[in-house]
Computed example of a mutant assay.
Amino acid sequence: MDMQKALVKNLLAYAVRREIPAEQLCSLAGLSISALQSKNPLVITPKQLNDLWLNACHLSNDPLFGLHLGESMQASALGMVGLIIQHSSTVGEALTQAASFTHLITDLFGMQVTQHKTGFTIQFIPYKDGTQEHSFAFQQMMDLFMAYTLHEMDGLVLQLIQPKQVKLPFNSDHEAEYQRVLRCTALRKSKEYVIEFDKQHWNTPVLTANYELQSMLLQKVGAVDDTFGNIPNLRTRLSSYLLANAYLGIPSLEDLAANFNTSARTLQRKLQEEGITYQQLAESVRKSLALHYLESGTYPIKEISYILGYNELSAFTRAFKRWTGSSPVNYLKN
């Protein structure tokens, strides 16, 4: 799989969700959508990549477009997770494998994983002989990789992992948003790009079933869409986003709004203009997922309850009865 092309396609798909026409972005960057959609190899020049990032940030009015893209991407979006889990049984092994694939996606920096007494670090190191370290694309790609790597770890173990500290030369105007996306209040301004984790996560088992769950969701919603067609309504865009990332739970309205670079109030108002609230949308997604999981016959009811964010099986059963008029057990029988 051409991982650099996959990255650009994910960038365009996210831009479309942000109401930016993919055709316009490609035109401004001198890229061809038909070439991106074809199965033939495609060379994307540094200037094209830089122009793509510049215009994505400009048209979305979001200087942290790369950070938000990394937050929104599914762990399997770049085609690496399947390769990683074939050779990994723990998070530590998976990250070590992931580091060896970095060069297939970007020539701007490498990834180094180091274990120490109290934990382990992931460091993104600019290539010394590179001339693009201060390019616009470099900063956006670095933000994307830091957020995506954290998201990738979540997907491998099906839980939200919190770093001990993060080092990066962040803009102080955006410190709070970096803290939110990277789930770390211990943000240190530094010339290095480092995420540090507690040692307990190093040997956390990687479960193949989690990747299968992600793959099933991606097939259901077509998360990495090759068509970049017309921009759907907000309800459809948000539903697709929630479904594709549902293996990590349904986010709060505030977190979802931040990912789309808007306020919770504005997002709720726009949804209400389409005749629905965020709470109703989230319930609709949970119902769709519950039915999908049950009908797949792969997951026990208790596990489905946990995946959907219910602390108690009884709470999930009550919600399911409200949606369908039947309990999960009776639904399966019928």
Rank of each mutant, 00 (worst) to 15 (best):
V81Q: 12
T208V: 11
L267E: 02
Q214G: 00
E283P: 08
K47E: 11
Q112M: 15
A99R: 01
N50D: 15
P169K: 00
K287F: 09
F170T: 00
T298R: 14
L271E: 10
V285A: 06
L78M: 03
T45P: 13
V285W: 03
D173W: 01
I161Y: 10
A315Q: 09
E177S: 00
R17H: 00
I84N: 07
R286Y: 09
N50A: 04
K47W: 08
G70H: 02
R188H: 10
T208S: 12
I84R: 07
T266F: 11
A282G: 07
L31F: 00
V81W: 10
I33Y: 10
A319P: 07
G92Y: 05
Q165M: 12
Q115R: 15
A282M: 04
G82A: 10
T118S: 10
E212I: 01
A13P: 02
A315V: 15
L308D: 02
S239Q: 13
N10Q: 08
I85M: 05
I84C: 01
S296K: 04
Q86V: 04
L11H: 01
G229E: 14
S314P: 07
Q123E: 12
A209F: 06
E274D: 13
R235H: 13
R269A: 15
D62Y: 08
T266E: 15
S252K: 12
R265S: 14
K302C: 08
T208K: 11
G309W: 08
Q280W: 04
T266Q: 14
N245Q: 11
L67I: 07
A176R: 00
D143Y: 09
E23A: 00
V8T: 06
V81S: 13
S327E: 03
Y211H: 09
N261G: 07
A282C: 06
V181C: 01
G110I: 13
M3C: 09
V166H: 04
L256C: 14
Q115C: 14
F228L: 14
T118M: 11
S76V: 05
R237T: 09
L49A: 01
V43K: 13
L289Y: 01
T185M: 01
D226Q: 10
C57E: 11
Q112F: 15
F320A: 06
Y127S: 10
R183V: 01
V81D: 04
H174M: 00
P232W: 05
V43A: 12
W323R: 04
N259R: 15
S89R: 11
T266M: 15
A319Y: 11
A223S: 13
R235V: 15
L242H: 05
D129T: 10
I304Y: 07
P251M: 02
N50L: 01
I304D: 06
H134V: 09
Y247S: 08
E254C: 07
G325E: 08
G92N: 05
A290C: 03
Q37W: 11
P21A: 04
E133A: 12
P21S: 00
G82S: 11
N61E: 14
L78D: 03
A94T: 02
T149I: 12
Y211G: 04
I276Y: 05
L36Q: 06
A75F: 14
H151K: 09
A6V: 00
